[in-house]
Amino acid sequence: MNAFAYHFGFEFRVGIRNKALMLMNYLFPLGCYLMFGALMGSINPGFLQTIVPAMSVFAVLSGALLGMPDTLVNAREAGIFRSYKINGVPALNILVVPVLTSMLHALLVTAIIALTAPALFDGVAPANWAGFLLVFLVTAFALAGLGALIGVVSTSSRMTVLLSQLVFLPSMILGGLMLPSSLLTGALGKVALLLPTTYAMDAFAGLAMGQGTGSHAWQSVGILLAGGLMAFGLALFLFSWDSKNSTRRGHPALALLAWLPYVIGLLLAH
């Protein structure tokens, strides 16, 4: 078995073996799915139209932003990356493997949600499964890229929580998961257009759920893909093997460039 495959397999098992990651990858998103499905279905029946993509995005957010960054920070602070470097583990693998495993965990949770939502909550299943998978993968890549970037620029667990929540909470409230972004007007509507989840929900609606316009959805896919590439590229550029002996190639503030595609999305919308 080659090194990358073994590394991927190990990291995936850790995502289940490690209690904190198990919580963020599976228990938290599935628990919230059951809770939101039961509560929101009666409060806001319209939610059931989007429960599958919304909770899928929620699962990605949970694993990629609340789970993955802290493990990267902890590994760097514990000298694990130094040990990896000495033993020839490339920086690219250190970042690619958690991104891919985070996407795989979210895919498994999404499969459970997509297959059970119609039966449990009368939720609407995707009309186009291929489109659903495509949008899921692009969304997961965009958010996992951001998670990797947060893990790279954070200097402590406390800072990781702060940065992760700066993306997670607005995404939950304004990103179209609980209510359609189209209902948001003025400044809130503009803020929503700076969030990856807004584009994810738009793309799901157009390409998977049969609820929006295809051309607009493809633009959202493009913005998410660009956002993921920017975030991951910046994470790789700003990566450092350890905090004491920083060989970082640029200032951590460069991480803000990851928002460039979403800023362009905001400008295109007006």
Partner: peptide, 27 residues
């Protein structure tokens, strides 16, 4: 070179045999 670092340098959830396999595959 082989290096035994002063600090652990290994993830807590690594099993002994996994750690050996992990580094050997990279070598």
């Amino acid at each position: 070179i082989g290096v035994q670092l002063q600090t652990s340098g290994l993830p807590d959830s690594f099993r002994v045999e996994e750690a050996m396999r992990f580094f050997c595959t990279y070598h």
